[in-house]
Amino acid sequence: MLPKGNLLREPRAIRVKFAKTGKLRYISHLDLCRTLNSAFLRSGIPIWYSQGFNPRPKMVFALTVSVGAESVAEFLDIRITHEMSESEIAKRLQYALTPELEILEVYRPASKLQEVAQSEYHIFTERPLDPSAVEAALQQPMVVMVHGKKGDKEKDISGQIVSVLVDSDRICARLLAGQGDFLNPENFMKGLLTSIGEPECLYLIRRVACYDADGRLFR
């Protein structure tokens, strides 16, 4: 219904970097997908549809944060069928969303989403943690119950922790976040808080950046 730009010879890959903060942290990945699906449709962005019996706007996400966590580093790949500038896409998409789903950047990607291997989290705790206690806990194996496809099992997660820095009520943690080797920051916090004897301490997780296997900022 909306006038479209010129048809592209090949659908063009477009990456959207966005933030989900505030109330949006209570929204699951599936619900986020539905939200973005309708947002693309109402935005008039010429998104490419999956082919087949039941075509849907095709969206591919980098590993997303779990319910309860915020993120200022979410990545979504789409393709467009007709010419539209990246800035126009960003503008239209933001217009079709609430401010708590903020479009940070729209660009043509030079990397693959699968290259994400680590994530940096800022975790805000209810009260400041004792840095020396955290330091001591990180020297030990950290065994937590992990949900898996084959049920719950105990696992030592210490090998999946890249680096941790405690600054008053903020923990900066870089954890493995590859498709094959992923540490859920919730499990990290469970393990850490149990180790330092503060299992009831409330916290808020915010993903701030993603990195590749060589530790280079992912974009």
Binding site: G22, K23, L24, Y26, I27, S28, D31, T35, A39, V67, G68, A96, L97, T98, E100, F124, T125, E126, D169, L202, Y203, L204
Partner: peptide
């Protein structure tokens, strides 16, 4: 960081999305 009561409650219920408002529109 301060966590208000509503926030604490929302963490403990199923489908907190039922109560938060803030929808588009």
């Amino acid at each position: 960081m301060n966590f208000d009561l509503k926030d604490k409650i929302l963490r403990s219920v199923v489908k907190p999305g039922r109560y938060i408002g803030g929808e588009y529109g």
